[in-house]
Nucleic acid binder design. Sequence first.
DNA 1: TTGAAAGCGCTAACAA
DNA 2: TTGTTAGCGCTTTCAA
Lengths: 347, 347
Amino acid sequence: MTQKKVTLKEIAQSTGVSLGTVHRAIYGKGGISEETRQRILEEVRRTNYQVDEAASVLKRGAKKVVVVLPKAQKEDRFYFRGLWRGIRKAAQGMEQYKIYFHFIESDYPLTQIWRELEWVYDEMLEEIDGLITVADSERTNVWISRFDKRGIPIILLSSYYPEKGAAVSCIKVDHERSGRLAAEFMHYGLRQRDGKILMLCGYDQIYSNRVYAEHFEKEMQSLGHEILKVEGFGREDIEGECSRYLEEEQVQAIFASNARNTFSICQMLEERKMGKDILVVGTDVFEELQPYYEKGILNAVIFQYHWEQGVYAVNKIHEYLSRGIRNQEDKILPPVLLMKSNYEYFL
Amino acid sequence: MTQKKVTLKEIAQSTGVSLGTVHRAIYGKGGISEETRQRILEEVRRTNYQVDEAASVLKRGAKKVVVVLPKAQKEDRFYFRGLWRGIRKAAQGMEQYKIYFHFIESDYPLTQIWRELEWVYDEMLEEIDGLITVADSERTNVWISRFDKRGIPIILLSSYYPEKGAAVSCIKVDHERSGRLAAEFMHYGLRQRDGKILMLCGYDQIYSNRVYAEHFEKEMQSLGHEILKVEGFGREDIEGECSRYLEEEQVQAIFASNARNTFSICQMLEERKMGKDILVVGTDVFEELQPYYEKGILNAVIFQYHWEQGVYAVNKIHEYLSRGIRNQEDKILPPVLLMKSNYEYFL
DNA sequence: TTGAAAGCGCTAACAA
DNA sequence: TTGTTAGCGCTTTCAA
């Protein structure tokens, strides 16, 4: 049943100081001489003392975590819905640890989310103990690092954050494998020798977009398939080019590397009554795709565990807050392929 | 920040009894009249009182949970390894809640696991507060229900438990969809018109086995494929028949509905140098399959979240023990298809 | 810079 | 059958 747990009191006794002093040492608070702190921390290490979370939670005040993400609406609705749901679900369970969440469902799109961060920094810096958000641009990173400097633990979703040594954890999906997985599946499903592959790759400038699409492309090419590439986000962007390809070329399969384009292409195929003969592999899972599975237009999607990303972020914040665990390793989640038989579970 | 939490004390005051009495009412302990209990429980419901886990853990004694499962060895190694790992991983985090685990990695195979339960019942009944195990036969169910009668919460992995009203939760995988998923993928990958499908279906007597295999078969047949069926578990059982089919029939694809047969058929195909032209869909993920992915013998597996099943079981027990939550709904996990691009993540 | 002490909300043991 | 009470290990406030 494991050895008896070390308590604060024991540390206090063996170092000859009071409980309060040990506490100050452990939490890096002021009002303690550097020398005593070192002496105490040494003992803490030696005995492998761990804070008892139950006792800590019982006594300490509430902690507040702010979540700043674009609202799941319009263009962003597919992508952020899963994230939001996972976060909200997991956040419920955090009440018992006196960790409360303040959700900011921003009306700003991803590219301008830094405005929201700016507001939070100015208006509520004093009250927050943790932050969950996304970082997709230099501009955002600046604000992230400001929060970081104030000692606030930060979890970044689907993001790349360059600064090392910061108490910032990223959670993301393996985009490289996502691309390869899409290609691997598509290769199984292809029938004709001479048909071409239409690829809707989003924006090349967005790093994750590019990695995802590039690996799909590379893999398909190495398997001997010819790719037709269409850039852009959403129906307005892609419809013209897509139409042309669908009419003029022999398209045997389509790959859409993001949620919005997956939805758009399904709509377009349905209107043109072309779905059945073309193998369609999309990205993400959301209710709006359901009819296209049923009608046989959509064949599979690459799912990126948005829900799990949200859950994971919340649990990570909890680790930080309750046990002071500050490991900054990025968490990488695997992609998974969903088809008609099992996609419903992931809605 | 949600409304202030209701405390025991408040319940005690508003019902005009003492703390101890409220406690007795909530936990169904003796030494309290049915009338007061009802009155108190009514107030608990009305105010939506929830036990404060932190305070509870701090004060209460340690809880002990026994896990009884076949050891991951020999025939059973593929199947139980993931389960064991998930359980052990999750169990680590339970120390902070003073929930300690006692692992019994039984040398008995699944069919005789009841012997182990018998031993636990005789030798340690008094010390245990929870049980995680598997039930696959009438004989086992008898023991399960004995524990249940003693008020011990039980989580059953990959099991069907008939008795209603018991505090027994089952966690299992959707076998029906597993079968359909395997068929759906296989259909994408098939090339020839006239080739046949070899199906290694395990034992028909085992319920989960049968459901899984039946749905695969039904789906494939409805897609117009001819099935060759081989019963049995492990290489000794199936090699004779498989060999014959592989030599005499035009086999274009193979489906194995369990871990052992997946491994066996991969070995056999490799030895016969037949892997490359046959589409192979197996079940479960484990290290030993890795080389067959690499060599192109194994194309995909249906993964059943063993790891997650273990984690879930532990969390469920935690719910029971710390918050008295006794919902007996079965938890059904989805199957997922893994291929070369992403299986490694699930090892 | 340090120590002392109150008490978080609950459980369990004992008393009535 | 019910009430009372002593802490669990920690955080925080106040006093020294």
